Deep mutational scan, measured.
Amino acid sequence: NLYFQGLKYMVPGARVTRGLDWKWRDQDGSPQGEGTVTGELHNGWIDVTWDAGGSNSYRMGAEGKFDLKLAP
């Protein structure tokens, strides 16, 4: 699974964008943008601060869902 392989790169400072299971509307800005991981992966959740200004926790394994992917 590509998403599980990418988890080791989901570290503080990593750049991310919305992924396969995104369901959080425009939390990442409008139009959709990139963000920066600000915390360690914990119980399948990870913290992100978006360039647009907001921050929140997103699923990276929790509930079998992956809200994020590494930015290109």
Rank of each mutant, 00 (worst) to 15 (best):
N56W: 12
R15E: 00
D28N: 13
G33R: 08
G61W: 03
D28I: 05
N43S: 09
G39K: 10
V11W: 08
L7H: 08
L7F: 08
G29K: 04
D47C: 15
H42V: 14
M10A: 05
Y3T: 14
H42W: 10
T36N: 03
T17L: 12
T38E: 06
G53L: 03
D26Q: 09
P72K: 12
D51C: 04
V48D: 00
E34N: 10
R59H: 02
T17F: 05
K69P: 00
P72V: 12
M10I: 11
G64T: 04
D21E: 04
V11P: 06
D51K: 04
G53M: 02
G35P: 01
Q27I: 05
V37N: 00
E40T: 13
M10F: 15
Y9V: 08
L70G: 04
N43R: 10
A62Y: 13
G29T: 06
R18G: 03
G19H: 05
W22C: 06
W24I: 05
K65E: 04
K23S: 10
G35K: 01
T17W: 05
M60K: 00
G54V: 10
F4G: 14
V37M: 02
G13N: 05
G44T: 00
V48M: 00
F4D: 15
Q5K: 14
M60E: 02
R18Q: 06
N43F: 10
Y58V: 05
L20D: 13
W22E: 05
P72W: 12
G13P: 03
E34G: 11
W50L: 01
P31H: 07
G54Q: 11
W50R: 00
T36V: 10
V11G: 08
T36D: 01
D51F: 03
G29M: 06
P12T: 10
R18K: 05
Q32E: 10
G33I: 04
E40K: 12
G13I: 02
S57E: 08
V37C: 08
I46M: 06
G61C: 04
T17N: 06
V11Y: 09
E34R: 13
L70C: 14
G44Q: 02
Y9W: 10
Q32M: 12
N56Q: 08
P12H: 10
V16D: 01
V37A: 03
G61H: 00
N1P: 13
Y3C: 15
G61I: 02
S30Y: 12
N43A: 10
R18C: 07
V11C: 15
L2G: 15
G61P: 01
R15V: 03
R15Y: 02
N1H: 14
L20V: 13
K23N: 09
I46F: 01
R18D: 00
D67F: 03
R18H: 05
E63D: 12
W45L: 05
Y58M: 04
N1T: 09
W22T: 04
D21N: 08
N56T: 04
G13F: 05
D26L: 07
W45R: 03
L7P: 07
V48C: 02
F66D: 01
L41S: 07
A52M: 11
L70P: 09
L7I: 11
Y9A: 09
K69R: 12
S30A: 11
D67N: 00
L70R: 06
F4H: 13
A52P: 01
Q5N: 11
V16C: 03
G33D: 07
K23E: 13
P72S: 13
I46N: 00
A14Q: 09
N1A: 09
T36A: 04
G6R: 09
L20A: 11
T49F: 08
G61M: 01
L2P: 15
E63K: 08
K8R: 10
G64V: 03
E34W: 14
Y9K: 09
L68E: 01
E63H: 10
N43E: 10
G13E: 03
E40M: 12
L20I: 13
K23A: 11
R25A: 15
V11T: 11
K8T: 08
G61T: 02
L2C: 15
G54M: 11
V37H: 01
Q27S: 07
Y9M: 09
R25V: 11
W22V: 05
G54P: 06
E40Y: 13
K8A: 11
D47E: 14
G64N: 14
R59P: 03
L2Y: 11
E40R: 11
G13Q: 04
G64Y: 06
Q27T: 06
R18T: 05
V48I: 06
L20S: 10
D47N: 13
G64I: 04
M10S: 03
N56Y: 14
W45K: 02
Q32C: 15
L68W: 01
A62H: 10
E34A: 13
G33V: 05
S30I: 14
L70D: 03
Y3R: 11
K23D: 11
E34S: 12
D21G: 04
R25G: 15
A14R: 07
R59F: 03
K8Y: 08
K65W: 04
T36Y: 06
D47V: 13
M60W: 08
F4K: 13
D47T: 14
G61L: 02
N1Q: 11
I46R: 00
S55F: 11
G19R: 07
Y3N: 15
G33Q: 09
L7C: 15
R15G: 02
G64W: 07
P12G: 07
D51W: 00
W45T: 02
W22M: 05
T38G: 05
G64K: 06
P31L: 08
N43D: 12
H42P: 02
G54T: 10
Y3W: 14
H42R: 13
L20R: 14
P72T: 12
Q32K: 11
G13D: 01
G6F: 15
A14P: 01
D21R: 04
L70Y: 10
D21L: 02
W24L: 05
M10K: 03
F66C: 11
L20Q: 14
S57C: 15
K23Y: 06
M10R: 05
F66H: 04
A52L: 08
A62M: 04
K69T: 12
Y3Q: 15
D26R: 06
Y3H: 15
W50V: 00
H42A: 10
K69C: 15
S30E: 11
D21F: 04
L7D: 07
T36G: 01
A14F: 03
E63A: 09
L41W: 13
T17Y: 06
G39Q: 07
D28G: 06
K8M: 11
R18N: 01
G44V: 03
W50I: 00
T49Q: 12
G35L: 02
W45V: 03
W24H: 06
I46A: 03
G44I: 02
K65S: 09
F66M: 07
W50Q: 00
L41I: 12
R25Y: 12
M10Y: 14
M10E: 05
Q27G: 08
L68R: 00
A71E: 07
G6C: 15
T17Q: 12
L20P: 14
T36P: 02
A62V: 06
V37G: 00
L68N: 00
M60F: 09
G13R: 03
P72L: 11
S57Q: 12
I46L: 11
G35R: 00
G61A: 00
D47I: 13
T38Y: 06
D26K: 06
S55H: 11
F4L: 13
A52K: 10
R25S: 14
N56F: 15
Q27M: 06
G54K: 08
D21I: 02
K8Q: 14
K69L: 13
K65I: 05
G29E: 06
L41A: 08
M10D: 01
A52E: 09
W45E: 00
T49M: 13
T17I: 14
Y58R: 01
K69V: 13
W50A: 00
G39E: 05
Q5V: 11
Q32S: 14
